[in-house]
């Protein structure tokens, strides 16, 4: 009985991973191409932009806030890069994009923490404003990026594709910050109980503010990686990508209410989503069912998470008297 419980709990606790393995087996059975190493590398490369975005989103979600503007931020910074900064070497371009995106995050964070407006609304508004500015600058044309930038997509560092390098670097830094620095632990504290955090003397506003800046920064990096991959941006670029980033984080166990989750889960969530799409592609599934399957996976993973919480509550409920003999 007890070991059975524990097994169920273990499965539930690792639901996204179990789901991942099941998918691997299913796709692997249908196509032998799917389980090839090269294909996995592809999945990780494809997942890189969304995963980087989702890592930034994780910081914001951990504080119990949300950032809907990251997609628009990607579009605006990419547009500025394509229109005004065409000639500059790519490292400067990357830095410029990161700086602009971080500044946008700072505006979001500043309005949220200084004016006390709900982040959902603030970032909804900046979403409109940023998209509007980007369309204005670009005249709603599709903007092409020069070769030095698109060449990056084929570049390697020590044999590792550039997208994976960027992905790994962002992930490593984010993990270190969240788990090994005082700031990271304070992010969890603020998300877990903002009132207690204030009473404990933590600089709650500054922490929330910085998380928005980090989300912006990640939007810049993720956007840059994605333009090296696609080479052009149009008015639909980055549209609704914030929802995919949130979905990836939630899929990996990040709570929308703050204080729970980690970037490890988030990265996994992003890879899971891309694995589904990649697998469907390899088995030649009807492209129309991609969003259906993705949605179903997200739904199932979150439903299992809800179920798990309920079961844990039940198992951990304090009993008044011993259960034996009843």
């Amino acid at each position: 009985m007890k070991t059975g419980n524990r097994l169920v709990l273990l499965l539930l606790q690792n639901a996204p991973y179990v789901l991942f393995v099941v998918l691997l087996i299913l796709f692997g059975l249908v196509s032998d191409r799917f389980l090839a190493v090269a294909n996995f590398r592809n999945i990780v490369i494809q997942a890189a932009p969304i995963a980087i975005l989702a890592i930034g989103m994780t910081f914001v979600l951990l504080t119990g806030q949300i950032d809907l503007s990251v997609g628009a931020s990607m579009y605006l910074t990419a547009s500025i890069l394509a229109i005004y900064l065409t000639g500059i070497p790519w490292p400067l371009g990357l830095i410029a994009v990161m700086a602009m995106a971080a500044a946008i995050g700072a505006v979001n964070g500043g309005v949220v923490t200084r004016l006390g407006v709900a982040s959902f609304i603030v970032t909804l508004a900046t979403l409109f404003i940023l998209r509007g500015i980007a369309m204005w600058l670009s005249n709603t044309r599709t903007l092409m990026f020069p070769d030095p930038i698109t060449d990056l997509n084929r570049a390697h560092v020590l044999g590792v594709p550039s997208a994976i390098v960027a992905f790994a670097a962002v992930f490593a830094v984010a993990w270190l910050v969240l788990h090994q620095t005082p700031f990271g632990r304070q992010v969890y504290a603020v998300g877990g109980d903002p009132e207690a955090a204030r009473k404990a003397g933590l600089p709650v506003r500054r922490i929330v503010f910085l998380c928005f800046v980090i989300a912006g920064l990640c939007a810049g990096i993720g956007g840059f990686v994605s333009i090296t991959q696609i080479g052009a941006v149009g008015p639909k670029y980055g549209d609704q990508i914030e929802f995919s980033a949130i979905a990836a984080a939630v899929l990996g166990g990040v709570s929308l209410f703050g204080g729970r989750g980690s970037v490890v889960g988030t990265v996994f969530g992003a890879i899971l989503i891309k694995t589904v799409q990649n697998g469907l592609n390899i088995i030649n599934a009807d492209p129309y069912i991609y969003p259906l399957v993705t949605a179903a996976i997200i739904f199932i993973a979150v439903a299992i998470d809800g179920l798990r919480t309920r079961i844990i509550e039940k198992l951990e409920r304090r009993t008044i008297r011993p259960l034996t003999g009843e």
Binding site: Y188, A189, G192
Partner: peptide, 10 residues
């Protein structure tokens, strides 16, 4: 004034 989502040492 504790954070249940953190460890005792944290």
């Amino acid at each position: 004034n504790l954070f249940p989502n953190l460890t005792i040492e944290e």
